[in-house]
């Protein structure tokens, strides 16, 4: 328990070890540690950046998909509209065409009726003349009685 030269010896060796540590141990170790810390921080930062970029890309992709969907539905509805139009047009055309056909048929029919009536008229007049001839048992001048006959025919 005596205080002796060991005290000074210990102080000297302490100083020497600290000096050694200060020169050869601390600076390289702490330098490496700091550098590694910086590298790790950098890595983390770039990872963060990457994650952000990915998020942005995902957002963009989502946007694109939404746009595409909207466009597609627009196109579909346009097509539907167009097809409806076409059907409508076709209907219209068909109706017009049928009307036309009907009208021409009607005209032909009218024509037929008129000509038939005309023929019938002729027939009736001759039948009437014949009938009159038979009734009168004598020759009647068709020409003299034409006005009478015409009146008769107009009444048919």
């Amino acid at each position: 328990m005596n205080i002796n030269l060991t005290l000074i010896g210990q102080a000297i060796s302490f100083a020497m070890f600290v000096a050694f540590c200060m020169k050869f141990v601390w600076p390289p170790l702490i330098g490496a540690l700091r550098e590694r810390q910086a590298t790790i921080a950098e890595g983390l930062a770039s990872a963060e950046k990457g994650a952000q970029a990915q998020e942005a890309a995902e957002e963009e992709a989502k946007q694109l998909i939404t746009d595409a969907k909207t466009q597609a539905s627009e196109i579909v509805s346009q097509a539907q509209r167009r097809s409806n139009e076409i059907v409508e047009e076709a209907k219209q055309t068909a109706v017009t065409e049928s009307d036309k056909v009907k009208a021409s048929a009607q005209a032909a029919l009218d024509q037929e009726v008129v000509s038939t009536r005309e023929a019938l008229r002729g027939e009736v007049s001759s039948v009437a003349v014949t009938a009159a001839e038979k009734i009168l048992k004598r020759e009647v001048d068709a020409n003299a009685h034409a006005s009478v006959l015409d009146d008769l025919i107009a009444k048919i």
Partner: peptide, 27 residues
């Protein structure tokens, strides 16, 4: 006062050198 504890000095310097050696290699 004019004496020195050889054992204390021996072990203390040995262990101090061990510390220096270990950390020097690590450095």
């Amino acid at each position: 006062f004019m004496a020195i504890n050889l054992d204390s000095m021996f072990w203390s310097i040995l262990l101090g050198s061990l510390f220096c050696f270990i950390f020097w290699r690590a450095a």
